[in-house]
Amino acid sequence: MYRRLVPVAAAAMVLSGISMTSAYAAPVSADDSMFVKAAHQGNLAEIAAGQDARKNATTACVKKVGAVLVRDHTKLDADVKALAAKLNVTLPGSPTPEQKKQLAAVRAKAGTPAYDKAWLKVQEAAHTATLALIDKELSVGRNAEVKAAARSARPVVAMHLAMVRGGVCHAGKDAGKVRAGSGGHLAAGDDSLAVAGVAGLAGGGLLAAGGVLWFVRDRRRSPERS
């Protein structure tokens, strides 16, 4: 009897793994797709704005913040593009017309103190809007991978907002680099989610295995009860 039930235990563990994997492979909803596209366009806009600030800003602080935006949004966008390819989401080729218009208006003030002020104001509004976009995805999104990317990018975007909040430059708010392929995690302390995910999958398998072993043991003891 015990030998016949061993394959059952193995099968249950495999099925448990399949069910856990399926839970992480939710379909891509319209909201998920919209978020991925908007995030890509936002990254392109921030990279362009950062490059422009490094060239045209009059203060070292704004130049530094511009460099941080280029650094972080380049890496964030690498993750977005990889995710879009995996989920078959077609990305736009450029920022939105409104984003282009805003950058052109700021660039018109290049080389003057008005440039720095206008640049900071636009970046505050842009990062505030991006945080709202992220929070919406976390609230209504369905695909676990897209939501994980949004959740991981949030602290980076919040850091950028802190650097331009109130239209005042705060380059010292830079908390650290973002690792490419990390889904937007800052370099420090970004392994906890991965560990938690592995622990969760392992826990599901252990629970399933434990249940099957209890069943086997109970079946072996049943003749003694009768």
Rank of each mutant, 00 (worst) to 15 (best):
T59M: 07
Y115A: 04
Q123C: 03
M20E: 15
G200L: 13
V198F: 15
D52T: 09
K100G: 04
H127M: 07
G167F: 03
A60M: 15
A114Y: 10
L193G: 11
V62H: 01
F35D: 01
V122Y: 02
G203W: 09
K121I: 10
E98F: 06
F35W: 05
W214C: 14
A10D: 11
A194F: 12
A114S: 15
I134F: 01
V140Y: 12
E224G: 10
A60H: 13
V122M: 09
T90E: 09
A144Q: 10
S22T: 10
V195T: 14
T112L: 09
A196R: 13
L186R: 06
P95I: 02
G93L: 08
T96P: 02
A194N: 14
R142T: 14
L161K: 06
G176W: 02
V157H: 01
F215S: 11
T130D: 08
T58V: 14
T128S: 13
A153V: 06
K75T: 01
N43K: 07
P155I: 05
Y24P: 01
D116L: 06
V68M: 03
V8R: 10
V28M: 09
H160P: 01
V36K: 00
C169N: 02
V157Q: 02
A82P: 03
T96D: 05
Y24A: 11
P97E: 06
P27H: 11
H127C: 04
A149N: 06
G93K: 08
I18D: 07
R225F: 12
L133G: 05
L103C: 05
R154H: 15
L15P: 03
A108P: 04
G183Y: 00
S152A: 15
N88F: 06
Q99L: 08
Q41T: 05
D79V: 02
K101R: 12
T130I: 05
G181F: 04
E224S: 13
G66C: 06
V62N: 01
K109A: 10
M159V: 06
A125M: 07
S192K: 13
G197W: 12
L133R: 06
R3C: 13
P27D: 11
K86S: 13
L186G: 08
A25I: 09
L186I: 13
D218I: 07
E124N: 04
M20C: 12
R154S: 11
G197S: 15
G205M: 04
Q99M: 11
A12M: 09
M34H: 07
F35H: 02
T90H: 10
E46I: 02
G183R: 00
Y2L: 15
E137T: 07
T58P: 03
A162Q: 10
G205D: 04
M1D: 13
E98W: 05
C169G: 03
V157Y: 00
S139D: 13
H170D: 04
H160Q: 10
T21L: 13
V195N: 13
A49T: 06
R220D: 10
V140P: 07
K101Q: 14
R4V: 12
A78S: 10
D52W: 04
